[in-house]
Amino acid sequence: MTTKSDMGEFIAKAYQPKGPVVLDCQVKNIYYGDFRAVRDTHIPIEKNKVTGFIGPSGCGKSTVLRSMNRMNDLIESFRFDGSIHYHNNDIYNKKIDPVVVRRYIGMVFQLPNPFSMSIYDNVAFGLRLNRFQGDEEEMVVQALKRAAIWDDVKDKLKNSGLSLSGGQQQRLCIARAIATEPDVLLMDEPCSALDPIATRQVEELMIELKQHYSVALVTHNMQQATRVADVTAFLGVDISQGGRTGYLVEMDDTKKVFEDPQQELTQQYVRGEFS
């Protein structure tokens, strides 16, 4: 059973979450200026689960993910129509400061972006921001270890974060994001610059993180989605109306999405038969 919007556009069947929802993302429309980037996408992020986002390039995965901690507010032309409820508060409510949202909902970006300061200071940045009172050094070391970068940097914590290789920088950014133990972690293709070993370690990290927190993960790697995501959302792109508007096609348990997809588009995509 599928529904149609007023304008006759396809709307995905709503996903029925099995557990508590930490971040209930209901996108009606997302615009960049006049360009409608995403429409009609309802993605509940469940507590203590990894929610995967898959879909072709340009379908709006990053756009939706970045809306979830109001990162897109930095883009002037960005306009969000809909609501994202985080612990029963709409984060797009005027009373809520995006800075507060971002303290609880952390983010790892598609491209590594360490600060030009020492490796140690990079990781300690968030702790200092949140006025952490405990043993800072211990937390930094722990974050570096969990992000699978400790062995690479343990002898040069004072060196600049920019002196690392691309893949090392990405893991440093992961360490920076998890150091403050954010309640929800948004990860935008965190492994695209990593070798298979580091990728595995980061995947283990995600599984470990979901014990206490919730993770939203964008990935182009189907195996990764099946390995770590409990639930998977597949976004497609609508080129029928001249634009390239992304929308949710299907969302379900990962096993279901990959083994028994209900939509033909999903089937083609997960089997790699994309025309």
Partner: peptide, 11 residues
């Protein structure tokens, strides 16, 4: 992206 990273940390 540096600015983005800083805002992303909740600064």
């Amino acid at each position: 992206r540096v600015k983005e990273a800083a805002y992303g940390m909740g600064a």
